[in-house]
Amino acid sequence: MDNSRFLRNFTDNIEGIDVAAITLDTPLTHIPQWDSMAILTTLAMVDTEYGVQISGVEVQRAKLVRDLMNAVAAKLSK
């Protein structure tokens, strides 16, 4: 998993996000634009870019941007 590519895919996909302020260790709850619509567009991005799906439970469990990336990486390694 290319960390910087995941971060770029993540931020590119959420409108109005402050790209410079977001790292893999940013808590999702600190991103004002992280709402139910952003979740759906992220799921769509993960499906398109990585060809896998992360579940509702995995999204709920994710605290940091990195947790989302790890959920995707876990699916890719299967």
Binding site: S36, I39, L40, L43, A44, Q53, I54, S55, G56, V59
Partner: peptide, 8 residues
Amino acid sequence: LNGVDVFN
């Protein structure tokens, strides 16, 4: 409605 699960 669990939007994420339906979407997937």
